[in-house]
Design a protein around this nucleic acid. Sequence first.
DNA 1: AAGTGGTCTAGACCACGGG
DNA 2: CCGTGGTCTAGACCACTTC
Lengths: 269, 269
Amino acid sequence: MNTSRKTVVADHLREALARGDYKPGERLPGEEELAEQLDVSRATARLGMRILQDEGRIAIRAGRGAFVADHRPIVHLATPVTGGGDSERFQAGYQPHLREAGYDQVRQETKVSLDTMRPKVAKRLRHGVEGGAQGDLVVVRSSSRFVEGGLWQSQVTYFPYDIAGNTPLMSPESLEEGVTAVLRSLGYREEWNWDIVGARMPSPDEAESFGLGPGIPLLVQERVTYEGERPLRFTETVMPANRHQLLYSGGEAPEELLVLASDVNIFER
Amino acid sequence: MNTSRKTVVADHLREALARGDYKPGERLPGEEELAEQLDVSRATARLGMRILQDEGRIAIRAGRGAFVADHRPIVHLATPVTGGGDSERFQAGYQPHLREAGYDQVRQETKVSLDTMRPKVAKRLRHGVEGGAQGDLVVVRSSSRFVEGGLWQSQVTYFPYDIAGNTPLMSPESLEEGVTAVLRSLGYREEWNWDIVGARMPSPDEAESFGLGPGIPLLVQERVTYEGERPLRFTETVMPANRHQLLYSGGEAPEELLVLASDVNIFER
DNA sequence: AAGTGGTCTAGACCACGGG
DNA sequence: CCGTGGTCTAGACCACTTC
């Protein structure tokens, strides 16, 4: 059994939270106060709080204090369009979806560049293509989505140059109709795809740009779409897991029940 | 710009790792040694290493030292069976899949209990059902999968009692044929489903049972399957993100390319 | 027993946020 | 300005691992 002093502090707080002594968003006792209450040094109280922070249960802000974390992830429909018109609620696009969830001030920045493939990209886009003349060139579209001024989600899409070169895909304008539609207008059909979903902790840069403290992982989704055996694009989406969840539906799901799913929260007990 | 001493330590290590000075699994300099090299107190060196640990880049083991983290997540095909026979490589089941990935000593423990629905469970299983006599009862199947002696993944499935009561689903034997097949033999068809995928940090209990240090999030997958509008089961799967990734395929994906996807690693740069 | 990380203290000073 | 967290030190002792 672990009865170190800092564990005592952490357990003390954890129990208080479980009891509901403090509501989400509410401020907790400060380091000094806790140290006195539990008769430990301030450093130890600090270490104890740090544990709760690493668990994602509280958010500590310098000069302000510690606050109960409030995770309300938004659900994104990730199921590819294969199934036809799935749910209008989600199909309408990213921004309306967010607005509906109560967020305002949604903004998007897109940058486009031309680059040679990193090994990681090559591994995903090279299949079924000879490494010909421009076989190493990719069009890179990087989009950052901001909500209420903060970075919300970032997405990078790589297209083989012979598909996207000198097309609307190279314009930094946002693609209102969606990538799939633009590709189709260029004569390519996204017939099928795979998604890989995983999670990891943010790098310092990522933590900084997303405004994340310790205890908040990133959800990472990689998607490659194909026409036949030919890869059309590789998209990597990175989003803080306290604000995002992915929804995959199988079969012909009635919209009403997808809406139910969109209300799910893995942080719920 | 952050130039605090502990940041210097962290950056020093991060650069060394990026340079490839230490390979995955290799031991790093100790706290004392680092402190001396960089002319900081041991406590500061410690804090610096802690940062790298929280990023999931190194694993620190008491009495041993710090080691470069080596994340090699296994890809699990999560796409529901809707599409028919997708890929034999994955369909064969969990254990062979793991064995193929080079792991031995795979074991599974299943416990079955009868319980009343928590609110979370009710929210997911109540739809399309009147809260009748036994409407609150659920059959709970908890499975823990162990690999090389350590907890690998844990899964809890809830069935409405009027579906699973007095059936093979209440036996703690593992269901060789899979839940879907057993349900079918009981006259239920899993016509469609939704999955919600998210990530969060482990609780102390979870960290303990999975053997996780700081810096490793959990991947959480929730799945509810339906026949028509009736929920048949709710499954929650929890797995350490450094060892698991989920694969969702859309369209009729050729097996060869799914195999390519199964080689993807989000930790790659 | 030696080596390495884990915990803890007391005290100092800095940095940020809000009156 | 004050309160709060952020960083850092020096030194002590404990617990676990390995030889």
